[in-house]
């Protein structure tokens, strides 16, 4: 029983059915492990590791330059809508409680999306697509993304960032 001390030699031979299960479980564990490097080689969805140190001031300047350069495709809810050229650098910042600016992208084209925060930790969640990344102040995170669907997707903040957290929703339109 599990409450008794063990006397003498207690490391018995392992039973065959136990051995079989341990063997199967170990093989399964190795498959679980292999899937992640394999997906880096063959899969289309992998967390980026292109990260730069930044400051809120530096990043804000980059975002402002990006918005000024356009091309601007109008304005929505007081936010500029930027329709950047494919294969270019695209910027979005998170701050209390807004994603800035909104974007208009093209399906099947690839963009380098730079993300950072002006203040607290935010969560970049494409809704309802369900694609999630963290946005930390002081870190400029570059995601190379290719939209594969058209229509409107929303950028929901999914890391708690204070009393207005639930208001923080941005937008990306894909044509």
């Amino acid at each position: 029983m599990s409450l008794q001390t063990l006397q003498g030699v207690w490391w018995k031979k392992v039973d065959a059915s136990e051995k079989m299960w341990i063997g199967i479980a170990l093989v399964w564990c190795l498959i679980l492990f292999a899937m992640m490097p394999l997906w880096h080689l063959k899969g289309g969805q992998n967390p980026s590791f292109e990260t730069y140190r930044t400051t809120p001031e530096q990043f804000l300047k980059k975002v402002e330059a990006f918005v000024a350069a356009g091309p601007k495709a109008g304005e929505e809810k007081g936010l500029p809508v930027i329709a950047p050229d494919p294969k270019t650098e695209v910027y979005m910042l998170g701050r209390l409680w807004q994603w800035y600016p909104t974007l208009k992208l093209k399906k099947g084209e690839t963009y380098r999306l730079h993300l950072s925060s002006m203040d607290l930790v935010h969560g970049f969640s494409l809704f309802p697509l369900n694609l999630n990344f963290m946005v930390l102040p002081g870190y400029e995170y570059v995601l190379t993304i290719t939209p594969t669907t058209t229509g409107e997707v929303f950028v929901v903040c999914n890391e708690f960032c204070g009393i207005g957290h639930h208001q923080m929703v941005g937008k990306i339109t894909v044509e």
Partner: peptide, 10 residues
Amino acid sequence: EQINIISHNT
């Protein structure tokens, strides 16, 4: 690592 993209903070 990758499946976390469709799970994290949901």
